[in-house]
Nucleic acid binder design. Structure first.
Lengths: 341, 341
DNA sequence: CTGTTAGCGCCTTCAC
DNA sequence: GTGAAGGCGCTAACAG
């Protein structure tokens, strides 16, 4: 019925538990005949050592926790994929927690995860503004407890741990420069994640590209939208304000929506208005016209985070300086932009 | 540095470990003054009990394992979402494993998960053909070990456990009937998952709908495709073979691809050819024209599976008959089909 | 009120 | 060759 234990095997053979343990570990101390008998019995009855007991003993669980803001977001799923791939390769399994963009849920999750269930944590936080302080404390405690931590994508600068981030400044720069290189001089930005510092970095890159061409930055060309906003209306203002020849949209779904709205209004994409979206996922490839995207290589981000984390977990010496890995993005050119000449 | 234990607290106060344990559990046996001292110390130093030890003691881990074939498939992500939501509500966390459509990986994963890390398992298998036998044995062993198991979506009939399945026959029927009700009498099927028994069920529903209208079933209208197949070519054969007015495509990405190919060849969607896709995800809503889909309510499937599993885990008496829950699908009508009059 | 004992399942060290 | 003892961190039953 219930799980077979060493004790039960020992009882069955009338020997001590430690004898069975040694036999199953093929110790030279045990006679061949007893070993083979015990092994045969174990196999026949499907013995499996209890990981909990083993973890308790050697203080590692061979498990890493991954905390992401939203499991329905394809970027994070890609990260998850990468983490799992790398972790499995090294004999770890992962326990996944989605915080649904809620800071409270994230706190609860971290609280839960700190109680010995995992050897290390890979986290993309939802904290913003004043919540950073709370987190610095909470994460600080985790680190004190000896928990290994890798922050990725949405990181908190002041926490002393390894980090894996996307080069968002460069991404914004790259997208903007592509527009400027393809006869699109009037570039607007639609920002569906205004509260995130990531969007600020991308806009920084955008400004840099403009500056290189001596184009004056116009804040009115940055359109913040959120779930409450009527994108349609915001775009109206934008398009009436000035002739726009290119739009950089800071996520995938919004990019597709923007493209549809723009087309509905009779603009041709890319000839009238070119569009580049962020965070390459499943959508952009299959819409019509297919959309040029900044790919963040989520799965690579995940792999890297897992690699860094496991490396630190398994390195005994400990005092390795923390490093921040910066993952470069790529521009996937498709049909929503004009070709480079 | 490392985690604080009861033992350390006990040493600090010069009392016994059990005293500390009782104090932290607010036992009436301990003097108020000692209790408050110990509690204060625990809070100050951030004491957290070790879950591993507790799990070992009461033989439950408050964790459930979820094994899915592919984490990049939106349906499974939705299921995951549902499972997590329900599990968290009941105080469980989940450990996620993706088997990447590989039977070997699935076996390894199950092997791993059986060693005491989880109280129960929610599984959608990738097994097919001869692999069923292997699995019946493996899953049988798991059940013997006292592991609770819920199979979902891709289930194995002969395993004695709870199941949550989508009503695929009805889904196929519903889609086909919608075509027939909207002046599309010549309905083809594109099947990107021919090895799965799910596709057979959907086709069964398709046949049922045809039979109701006395339309003869023509096997040539069923087009199997897989990753190796050139969809473009397969569709050529189909469209040359007969005038087709509707296509039912058994997954989302293929549905979008089929629609694009069909449109490229000059057919109007939905007037010349109407299309219904399966497994509503992120794509179908945003393509042009937006696509009518069968929604399988993945998140509801997940919730249900979690509910059933946790129910069984927590019910002590045990001998509850196994049940199979059938989740109904919905038809989300969008622009790729003609409206019902 | 507080401590001792025993045990969850396993492994390691040391003694026989 | 085999077994006994100790311990990972915790709780529960039983002593004192």
């Amino acid at each position: 019925m219930s799980k077979l234990t060493l004790k039960q095997i020992a009882a069955h053979f009338g020997v001590a538990v430690s004898t069975v343990s040694k036999a199953l570990h093929d110790s030279y101390e045990i006679s061949e005949s007893l070993k083979s008998q015990i092994k045969a019995y174990a196999i026949e009855h499907n013995y499996r050592p209890n990981r909990l007991a083993i973890s308790l003993l050697n203080k590692n669980t061979k498990t890493i926790g991954v905390v992401i803001p939203n499991i329905l977001n394809y970027f994070f799923v890609q990260v998850l994929f990468g983490v799992e791939k790398e972790a499995n390769k090294k004999g770890y399994s992962i326990i996944t927690c989605s915080t649904n963009e809620s800071f409270e849920k994230e706190e609860q999750t971290l609280e839960f995860l700190r109680s010995g269930a995992v050897d290390g944590l890979i986290l993309s936080t939802v904290a913003k503004g004043g919540q950073y302080k709370v987190h610095q404390k909470l994460l600080g405690q985790l680190l004190e407890d000896g928990m290994q931590l890798v922050l990725f994508d949405r990181v908190i600068e002041d926490v002393a741990c390894d980090k894996v981030v996307v080069d968002d400044v460069e991404a914004g720069y790259k997208a903007t420069k592509y527009f400027l290189d393809t006869q699109c001089q009037s570039v607007a930005v639609v920002n569906p994640i205004p509260e995130s510092n990531i969007s600020q970095l991308r806009i920084e890159g955008y400004k840099k590209a403009l500056a290189e061409r001596d184009i004056l930055f116009d804040p009115k060309l940055i359109v913040d939208v959120d779930k409450q906003t009527d994108i349609d209306l915001s775009l109206s203002f934008l398009l009436n304000y000035k002739t726009i020849t290119a739009i950089m949209v800071l996520d995938e779904i919004t990019a597709v929506q923007v493209m549809q709205i723009v087309r509905t209004r009779g603009y041709h994409v890319p000839n009238d208005i070119a569009i580049i979206g962020f965070t390459n996922g499943q959508l952009s490839k299959y819409v019509t016209p297919s959309m040029t995207m900044i790919s963040q290589h989520g799965s690579y981000v995940g792999e890297t985070a897992a690699k860094v984390l496991i490396d630190r977990i398994e390195r005994k010496d400990g005092k390795m300086p923390f490093k921040t890995k910066i993952i470069k993005t790529s521009l996937l050119v498709r049909e929503s932009t004009k070709p480079r000449l």
